[in-house]
Design a protein around this nucleic acid. Structure first.
Length: 480
RNA sequence: UCCUCAGUAGCUCAGUUGGUUAGAGCAUCUGACUGUUAAUCAGAGGGUCACUGGUUCGAGUCCAGUCUGAGGAGCCA
């Protein structure tokens, strides 16, 4: 008897062979047809019993949501929905599911809104949609490691508890051991972090970049892939308080190399999904088409999900400097007709979502890499250009989700870096180790951060980021 | 944090100018049927109308506040 998972049985199972399956009941029709799913793939395995062989007491216990053990023979299916099925020789219920209780959960066999599924995040993984999304998430994270390992990057785990929040990446969560009912204060009335666990203020990391840079200047090519925390009060479909970020960092690499890497990397992982997750992608595509069929034609997507992914892997990302982008936006129809909420008047303005969306979705109609931004709207560590007013920064913008990558060539010149830190009042004392790397064999180097959930969003077509992570953490939401 | 919208059965929603006993579909239960694919057919049960207060003879409906959710904006990945 072979104990395989359902995905293996459906793809590699041999007719007339006996198999044993542990799975959950998705449907039980006519007291005869069991649709079983074990999470290994989207498809259910149909198992057929002869109801005459069982008393009605037992059949009642085989209900939706319960877990079962089934032994039987694989045969060709007489029905239309599947090619093979299991002719059941024995079945036992491992874990019961009271149908009156099931009725109150999202396991009940009917359509549920994504909002309702979110409220029962512990059960939503058993739905087709979340099974597909989570299998894709798993495959994508494998592809991330595979890409970097194949290209001679070293995986670096940067600290999750840190001392620095100086990168301007956003508000950090404080980690403390202090008695919150009796917080020690200094004579100046401030919290006395000297009494805290680490003897200084500790935060959850908002980015592993600075640490990754130091490792790149020793290991050459490195990447991080780990949890990241932002205490921003962001309530959008593309922000989480806890998310996973991928941050490659490469020594002896300029901004062009960085843009090449970003595109090559993204193309690789999307290709991986296209090759290895076809069934789940097809399901998600069908789901989107159904969802959009309610909308007027103009609002529907021009490309289906799979077409969209194929378009991205088969076309170059459009590379446009900030200065070129401003020209395009200045002369654009919506700007002239005053359709932008924030009209573009002059060089130096920060781009708003509406501008990024115009460039990506209307003007170029493909992923866009914007680079060479004004220095004063970007972070201190980005390399200053010869023009003295722009920095070697780049953002990769994707349709629907906006910024998926933010990166730059780093300022490797000690004097320029220190001057910039002084100007922005960034503590040189705290970041002495970062400055040190510019003293000992400094070299040009570059890197970027990619929000993993935004990538999963793009590939799965899910439009809320809370639906591509098992247990989303957002302001006022820490359930599960 | 700001703007907009929403909260009525397990779920999705309807509920008229404020007026009798708050409705439908799905789900659940009972029965029938038995090669079904969200099975089908017949019947039944199921409600703190988000919460608190107010206006009124009378509030699901009007007003105020609170909470929660969604969409958009800002911040960003």
């Amino acid at each position: 008897m072979n104990k395989l998972n359902i995905s293996q049985i459906i793809s590699d199972g041999r007719l007339s062979q006996e198999y044993e399956v542990n799975a959950w009941v998705k449907a039980f029709r006519n007291d005869r047809f069991l649709a079983l799913n074990d999470g290994s793939c989207l498809a259910n395995l149909q198992c057929v019993i002869n109801p005459d062989d069982y008393n009605s007491e037992f059949l009642k216990k085989v209900s939706i949501g319960c877990s079962v053990n089934v032994k039987g023979t694989l045969v060709e299916s007489q029905g239309k929905g599947q090619t093979v099925e299991i002719e059941v020789e024995s079945i036992s219920v491992l874990g019961h599911a009271n149908s009156d209780d099931v009725r109150k959960t999202i396991l009940s066999p009917k359509k549920h809104s994504l909002e309702k599924l979110r409220e029962q995040a512990h059960l939503r993984v058993r739905t087709n949609t979340f099974g597909a999304v989570m299998r894709l998430r798993s495959k994508l994270s494998f592809a991330v490691h595979e890409y970097f390992q194949k290209n001679n990057f070293q995986y670096v785990t940067t600290p999750i508890i840190t001392n620095s929040d100086a990168e301007g990446a956003g508000e950090a969560f404080t980690v403390t051991n202090l008695d919150l009912k009796a917080i020690p204060k200094t004579t100046a009335g401030e919290v006395d972090f000297k009494k805290d666990f680490f003897g200084k203020q500790a935060n959850l990391t908002v980015s592993g970049q600075l640490e990754a840079e130091t490792y790149a200047l020793g290991l050459g090519k490195v990447y991080t892939f780990g949890p990241t925390f932002r205490a921003e009060n962001s309530n959008t479909t593309r922000h989480l308080s806890e998310f996973w970020m991928i941050e490659p960092e490469v020594a002896f690499c300029d901004l062009e190399g960085n843009m090449d890497l970003a595109q090559d990397f993204i193309t690789y992982v999307i290709n991986y999904a296209l090759k290895n997750c076809r069934e789940d992608l097809q399901f998600l595509e069908d789901r989107l088409i159904k969802e959009e069929s309610a909308l007027p034609k103009q609002q529907r997507s021009e490309l289906s999900l799979i077409e969209k992914l194929e378009f991205v892997v088969n076309n170059q990302f459009k590379r446009v400097s900030y200065t070129e982008a401003i020209d395009i936006l200045k002369n654009s129809k919506p700007n002239k007709k005053k359709k932008f909420e924030f009209p573009i008047h002059e060089w130096g303005a920060d781009l708003q979502s509406e501008h990024e969306r115009f460039l990506v979705e209307k003007h170029f109609k493909c992923p866009v890499i914007l680079y060479d931004y004004p220095a004063n709207i970007k972070a201190f560590y980005m390399r200053l250009n010869e023009d003295q007013k722009t920095v070697r920064a780049m953002d990769v913008l994707f349709p629907g989700i906006g910024e998926i990558v933010g990166g730059s060539q780093r300022e490797e010149r000690l004097d320029v870096l220190v001057e910039k830190m002084d100007k922005l009042s960034i503590s040189k004392e705290e970041l002495w180790w970062y400055i040190d790397t510019r003293k000992f064999g400094t070299c040009e180097h570059s890197g970027f951060g990619l929000g993993f959930e935004r990538l999963v969003q793009f590939v799965t077509g899910m439009n809320n980021i809370r639906d591509v992570i098992p247990y989303p953490r957002t302001p006022k939401n820490l359930d599960f």
